[in-house]
């Protein structure tokens, strides 16, 4: 069985056996292959990068070449139990619309993104620079990350859209959590994971 990066392990734990999932930006298909092998989960991955598509095909995963910015129009409403999007929200053109699309086609959404409210980002902004951190390693002019947000921003959007947050996990890059992260998640957390649904 493939080794999962810690973040995917948490996501996998949130997904019940035998369910149907759609993985937005599925990369090389690791998560889908793991869920298929360990809990009889079926579904599809969407990916735009040809090299990753080849890797996903090699894993025996169903992968559909798609530009997420074009929306999820090819999917019928309520056709999945979970729609997962890992480390991709910040790179799409219309994150708000895509979140709505996730909950149109799926019963629940699972999302992870780098927390722009982390203290190291704030310090660099205070010093007058766009943050460059281990979880956001690109400079402002060549980053794919065009819609960064903080935990508070994301939760505000969920309130506005009437999304109900079922679970939240805040971790560092090594996917550990700590007391400070639990007490001050928006300041101390590097990566945020949410499971949410429509109210």
């Amino acid at each position: 069985m493939t080794m999962l990066r810690p973040e995917l392990r948490t996501i996998a734990d949130w997904i019940s056996a035998g369910s149907r999932i759609l993985d937005l930006g599925c990369g090389d298909g690791t998560l889908l292959a793991h869920l298929r092998d360990s809990r009889q989960v079926s579904g599809y991955g969407l990916e735009i990068d040809q090299n990753k598509i080849v890797q996903a095909i090699a894993r025996g995963v169903n992968v559909i070449q798609t530009d997420l910015d074009a929306g999820l129009t090819e999917f019928e409403s309520n056709s999945f139990d979970y729609v997962v999007m890992s480390q991709t929200l910040q790179a799409v053109h219309y994150p708000d619309r895509l979140l709505e699309e996730m909950l149109r086609v799926g019963r629940e959404g699972i999302i992870t993104f780098p927390n722009f409210g982390h203290w190291s980002c704030r310090l660099q902004l205070l010093a007058g620079h766009m943050p460059v951190t281990p979880s956001l390693p690109n400079t402002w002019y060549n980053t794919p990350n065009i819609h960064l947000c903080t935990l508070r921003d994301f939760e505000a959007l969920c309130t506005e859209k009437a999304f109900h947050i079922l679970e939240r996990t805040v971790v560092d890059r090594a996917h550990r959590t700590s007391l400070p992260m639990r007490l001050l998640p928006n300041l101390m957390g590097e990566v945020a994971l949410y499971r949410f649904r429509r109210r």
């Binding site: 599809y44 996903a56 095909i57 995963v61 169903n62 559909i64 070449q65 090819e74 019928e76 056709s79």
Partner: peptide, 21 residues
């Protein structure tokens, strides 16, 4: 081709799709 893919998705078939540049 995407029409074919959509029909396969709607009928929950195993399908992969690549659009070659």
């Amino acid at each position: 081709s995407k029409e074919i893919v959509k029909a396969l998705l709607d009928s929950q078939k195993n399908v992969s799709y690549a659009e070659i540049e």
